[in-house]
């Protein structure tokens, strides 16, 4: 479960924690201003992190809920 808790805070740190450092327009990445790219990147990473959590979470393997 510890790993799951760590994964839970990761998107918050990535998306919000680094914001003061990445708040800039240039360089443009994938045609987007840098700060926009950073947020999009972390949105995608959040999905991936949640997928990893789902795989690691023993509760999803049991058939406890119906």
């Amino acid at each position: 479960m510890k790993r799951l808790y760590f994964l839970t805070v990761l998107p918050f740190i990535g998306m919000l924690g680094f914001l003061p450092l990445v708040n800039r327009v240039e360089p443009f990445v994938l045609s987007m201003p840098f700060v926009m790219f950073w947020i999009v990147l972390w949105t995608v990473l959040t999905s991936i992190i949640l997928a990893v959590m789902y795989k690691l979470d023993p509760r999803n393997k049991e058939d406890e809920e119906q």
Partner: peptide
């Protein structure tokens, strides 16, 4: 940002 993080 807030919608994405809410799913976590």
């Amino acid at each position: 940002m807030y919608i994405c993080l809410s799913y976590v």
